[in-house]
Computed example of a mutant assay.
Amino acid sequence: MSDALKFSKIFSNSAFAIENIQPYYFRATSTPLPEDISLITHITVASWPQLERLAENWQAPISATLHIQSKSSPLSPDIADILRDLGTKYRSNIAMSSHVDIHLYFSPPASSPSLALAHNVDRNLARLFARTEFICDVPAGIIPATRIRNTLRTNQKSFTPRLRDGDVMVVPLFTFIEHAAKHSAVPRTKASLLSLVSKGIIGLDDKHWELGNGPTNFERWRNSETLYAVKDYEVHYEPIVIQSRNAQPWCPERFADNEAACLFASYLNGADFWVLPDDFMIQLEPKRGNDLSNFESVIQNRLYAKSHGEMCVHFARQLDSLGLWDTPKAKNAIAQCSRVISSWGKGLIGKPE
Rank of each mutant, 00 (worst) to 15 (best):
F174N: 08
A333Y: 02
K351S: 10
H208V: 11
E56G: 12
W48Y: 08
D137G: 06
K89A: 12
P61Y: 01
F26H: 06
A271Q: 06
S266P: 03
D85Q: 08
T154Y: 05
N155F: 08
R222S: 13
W250Y: 04
T146P: 12
P108M: 03
Y237A: 03
P49N: 10
E238Q: 13
S47P: 07
L152N: 08
N223Q: 09
P61L: 01
R153L: 00
G212E: 04
Q59A: 13
I79F: 02
H42K: 14
I299K: 07
A335V: 11
N294S: 09
P108S: 04
S293Y: 08
P23R: 02
I242D: 04
P34Q: 04
Y237Q: 03
K190F: 12
G141I: 12
K190D: 14
I10N: 06
M311G: 09
E210T: 15
Q156H: 01
H99D: 00
P23C: 10
L303D: 05
L196W: 06
I240S: 10
P172E: 05
L196R: 07
I142D: 15
P352K: 02
N290F: 06
A46V: 11
L193N: 12
F255G: 05
G270I: 06
S266R: 00
P108A: 08
P32Y: 00
D272W: 00
P161R: 02
